[in-house]
Each structure stands twice: as C-alpha cells, then as structure tokens.
C-alpha cells in the first residue's frame, strides 16, 4: 500500500503530466479497474476500451481528488464506474421486460463451489445476456439499489428486480453445471 505522502507525490506528478508518476498510479490501480471493466463486458477488447477510457478520465480529473474524502483506490473505482455507466447511455441496452417473478434475494450456494477459479466465474458472468450481466454487476458488486439501477438504465424498478433474479438463477445454474463437470472430471 502507498502512504499518503507517496500518493500526494504521485498525484502532483500526474497533474504535471509526469509519465513515471502516471505509471505508478496505473500499476497501483490497474487490477481493480481491469477487473471492474471485465465484469461489465463480454470480451477483453471491450473491457480494454473501457479500461483506457477510464484512465484518460482518471488522469484528467485527478485534480479533483481529495485524500481526506476517501482512499485513492476507491476514488479510482468510482471514476471507472461512472465511465462504464456513461457508456451505457451511449448505446441501447438489450433489456427485455419479463414477467415479474417472486424476488428471491436469498439464493444459497454450496461452499464447495469455492473451488471454482475467479477466471471461470468471471467468464460465466461475461457470458450472461447483457441486461442480466449489467444489473447483476450493479446490484451485487457495486451495491446499488433497484431505484438507482432503474434511474441509470432508464428502466422500471420491477424490471430491474426481475432481471436480477433471472440473472442470479441463470448464473447459479451455469456455475453448478461447471462445478459438476469439473468435479466429475477430476474423479474420472
């Protein structure tokens, strides 16, 4: 972890367009930013575009960062999120309204599934339909409520709820299938 002095030093360097400082900030935050971008995108190329766009915005608006209001990584994460959400407004999302089904917020999963790798789970998230994937990401990982999701995506709260429920069930099914396949294979 970087100290406050180091962070101040890096920020000042970045504001002066010092590439070494920019690179330091990049190394410090790239894993988080890339992981966030990958969660929202279907493939690596799209994720890379968002990743680059996010960093351009980060370097541009670094002057507005105040270390007293939160840590640098959190600030970078929020900038990345804003960049991703603003990209939604540029394109029409494919969110098909579906019949509202009973919301099951408390879906459970067996702990054994912990054996699955992050990359495998991420791949399954990426393979979800666009609407499912985005709403799942916003609700589960970014801790947003349905009102906020509905506001950003321009959909109703009930649509958001139903999409989330479908996304959870579909993802769980896929992960269980993956787990079973792997588990059986390991015994064969």
């Amino acid at each position: 972890m970087l100290t406050v002095k180091e962070i101040q030093y890096i920020i000042h360097g970045c504001l002066d367009h010092d590439r070494i400082c920019q690179r330091k900030l990049f190394d410090f935050t790239s894993a988080k930013v890339m992981s966030t971008c990958k969660r929202y995108c279907t493939n690596h190329e799209d994720a890379r575009d968002l990743f680059q766009e996010s960093y351009i915005k980060i370097f541009k608006s670094l002057g507005s960062y105040n270390h007293t209001q939160g840590d640098l990584l959190g600030w970078v994460y929020s900038i990345t999120k804003n960049c991703i959400f603003s990209s939604f407004s540029k394109k029409k999302l494919e969110i098909f309204p579906i019949d509202e089904i009973s919301s099951e917020d408390n879906i459970l999963i067996q702990v054994d599934h912990d054996l699955l790798q992050e990359e495998e789970v991420l791949r399954e998230i990426q393979n979800l339909p666009e609407g499912y994937r985005i709403i799942l990401n916003m609700f589960v990982f970014d801790c947003m409520d349905h009102a906020a999701i509905a506001d950003i995506l321009g959909i109703s709260e009930s649509t958001s709820r139903s999409q989330l429920n479908r996304a959870r069930n579909l993802l769980k099914k896929k992960l269980e299938l993956l787990y079973n396949t792997k588990y059986e294979k390991s015994f064969i």
Binding site: L108, I109, V111, H113, F139, R168, L171, K172
Partner: peptide, 9 residues
C-alpha cells in the same frame, strides 16, 4: 454448508 450466492460471488 450453504452461503448467500451474492456474498459468495
């Protein structure tokens, strides 16, 4: 043992 799916994710 079972845990919340969201938490696990």
């Amino acid at each position: 043992k079972k845990v919340s799916f969201d938490h696990w994710l």
